[in-house]
Structures are given as structure tokens and as C-alpha cells.
Amino acid sequence: MDLAILVGIDFVNGVATLALMSIGLAVVFGMMRIINLAHGEFMVMGSYSAAVAYHHNVNIWVAILIVPPIAVAVIGAIIERVIIRRLYGRMVETMLATWGLSLFIVGILTTIFGSHTEGVPAPLSGIKVGNYQTSGYSLFVILMSVVTIVGVYVVLRATRLGLLARGTMQNAEMAAALGVDTSRIYATTFAFGAGLAGLAGGILAPISGVFPSIGGSYIGRAFITVIGGGPAPLVGTVTASAMFGFVNQLATFLSNPVYGEVALLVAAVILIRLLPNGITGRYFRRAL
């Protein structure tokens, strides 16, 4: 029974991590039809800002939850202004440009911090489940993932900004005619997505370790989850990460983490073959 609870926590944790990684990318893709291949590096910048803040004696909770989203959102806003803005409506060019951007950021991070691993300690100790011990931090990751998704839902659904953003994404010309500053909405949405990436990077920093090239291992999974999820950012992310996370954990449980990753990738290829527009391209079409 205790073992079953542990395995259950593992499964939910896998799903939650995947959702946390993908939500920022999904918001930008779903709202703006842009694939940001530098998303993994945005997360790494979040992790680094958490590490730097922590080493400057900032409270650990502030360092992983407050500093990263703000820092990365600011960087995202600048990047939107300088690069992304010129490429709206050209998906392939955007992917190539952000791929260049991701190489650039990896290089800059290596130059500044060196290629060794920075550490951020997990602020929660282990929790006993019967005779076993599990990490309290993984429960925290699950909680934060749920909070983030609910938060994104509230922002998009209940705030004026979310309303303007959804309106602009549906029909930019009409929104502009009604007096919405659409270019500012795009910039804000992109910065919002970047901030979510930063938050994910901050939260995952104690688990994954912080080094410049780790973004590469995030972006593959996040990218696949978003494409598998399809156009609706929230429902798509939740359903796709539930599915891929489950497959990943199941294969990991049965063999080892490498084949877990492989199973995830194979599941993604099959899913895209069956539903080329993602899960929400076929089901839950009117969802958010």
C-alpha cells in the first residue's frame, strides 16, 4: 500500500513536471502561433537567476518563486521587441531565429557562469510514507504545477488583460479597430510565457541542477507536449502531459529512465501521426 502511494506520487510528479515545463511554451504557441525553441534556455535563465539570488542570501522561497519569473519576463519582453516582433506570422522563420537565440543564450551563460553545475538546495526535507521515504519537494512541485495552471486560467479568463489577449489572438484587426494596442498585447503575452518558463526553471532548479546546456533536455519534451496538446494552451498542456507523463513514468517503472524517455518520444510520434493538429485540434475544441 505504501509502495503504491509512492509510485502514485512518482506518476503524478512526472505529469506535473511535464506540465510545468510546457505551460509557458503552450501559452505562446496557443495564443500567438509561435514556437519558441529558446524556451529551454528561458527555463535555464530562470534556474540561474534562482541560483544567483540564493547565493546572494535571498530567502530560498523568494529565490525560486519570485525572482525567476520576473527576471525572465523582462528578458522575454526585450527579446520580443528586438527579434520576435519582426517575424510574426512566419512560423518556420521564428523557429529558426529562436533556435539561433537558444544557441546564443547557451553560449552567453557558459561565458558568464562556466560549464560547471550550480546548486540550489531543495528547501523541503523528506516525508515518511509508512516504511518509505519520499521527497517533500516533489509534492511541492505537484502543488506548484496545479497552482500555475489555475493561475494561467484565472489570468486568461478573469482579468481584463486576458480578455484583451484572447480577443487579439482571435482577430487582431478587429481588436485594433476597437482600440486595443495589439503590438503591446503580443509583447505582454510573450513576456508572460517567458515568465512562466522562468518560474518553471526556478522551481525545477533544486531537482535538475543548473548548467548552461540543460535547456536542450527541456525543450524536446516541452515542444512535443505542446504540439501533441494542440491549439488550446491549457487543456492541451494538461491532457498531453497527462498522457506523455504517464507513458514516460510507466516505461521508467518497467525498465529504466532512458527507455522512459524513448517511450515518451515514440508515443509523441504516434500521437502526431494520428492527430496531426494535436489533442485539442480534435477534441475539446472550444476549450481554453
Partner: peptide, 17 residues
């Protein structure tokens, strides 16, 4: 002095834009 990734990334960005 310069990290190779910085140069490659800049080249790709510059050519796309």
C-alpha cells in the same frame, strides 16, 4: 575569448532576420 555557441547563434539569428 568567445564561446562558439554565441557566434553560431548570432550567425543564425542574423541570417534569418
Amino acid at each position: 575569448t568567445v564561446d562558439a555557441n554565441v557566434v553560431l547563434g548570432t550567425v543564425l539569428l542574423a541570417f534569418v532576420l
